[in-house]
């Protein structure tokens, strides 16, 4: 626990260094987190080269926006990951998902691989993690919908399509799932 706290403090200090123009701050964040950040981006954009492009852009944004980070708005780690996630999602939403998948057969194959990867994110959580337990308490469809959105970057429409649900139903199931999750984790 102490270690986790120390790491958080380090990232906050590193962001402060970035804000004052010290590149070592950014380098420190890169050395600690880049491997995971590339993996998170790749889970969303699917392609390695695009994932690195996402992380590259995200680090420039971290550098130029570090002065906006405020510790009362959550952890430095959460702030940094959110920037990478947003970049990755923007790349998808800019219509590059079609770049990412080729012929139909390949798409289907990649899709099933990604589904496995999405569920793996849940299984990989610490056994005693509250999030793992609370996700486990949801019905399968709600859990899958939430994980597809967060882990895979799927939209409401894509989730509805893959879960074979009408759009409105998918939306309201995810909403109800999110509510149960908030209550469970409160």
């Amino acid at each position: 626990m102490a270690l986790a706290t120390d790491q958080t403090t380090d990232l906050a200090a590193a962001l402060e260094a970035c804000a004052s123009g010290d590149r070592n701050g950014l380098r420190q964040i890169f050395d600690h987190e880049a491997g995971k950040l590339v993996a998170v981006a790749q889970r969303i954009v699917r392609r390695r080269d695009l994932a690195e492009e996402v992380v590259q852009e995200a680090f420039i944004r971290i550098w130029t926006h570090a002065h906006q980070y405020a510790p009362d708005r959550g952890s430095a780690r959460g702030w940094i990951y959110a920037i990478v996630r947003n970049r990755a999602l923007n790349m998808l939403r800019d219509g590059r998902r079609e770049d990412l998948v080729g012929e139909d057969g390949l798409e289907a194959l990649q899709d099933s691989e990604q589904q496995e990867e999405i569920m793996a994110a849940w299984h990989r959580l610490d056994r005693d993690s509250r999030l793992k337990e609370c996700l486990g308490g949801l019905d399968d469809t709600k859990r899958r919908g939430i994980l597809m959105a967060y882990v895979g970057g799927y939209t409401h429409g894509e989730i509805a399509g893959r879960l074979k649900l009408p759009l409105g139903t998918a939306k309201s199931w995810i909403r109800r799932g999110l509510l149960s999750l908030r209550e469970c984790m409160a």
């Binding site: 380098r27 491997g35 790749q42 959550g74 959460g78 959110a82 990989r124 993690s129 984790m185």
Partner: peptide
């Protein structure tokens, strides 16, 4: 909300980063 879902990202297996990325 960020903190609630963050473990799904931080528990990921890190990738080896291209040496040219930095």
């Amino acid at each position: 909300a960020r903190e609630r879902f963050l473990p799904l990202d931080t528990s990921i297996e890190p990738k080896t980063v291209s040496p040219t990325l930095w």
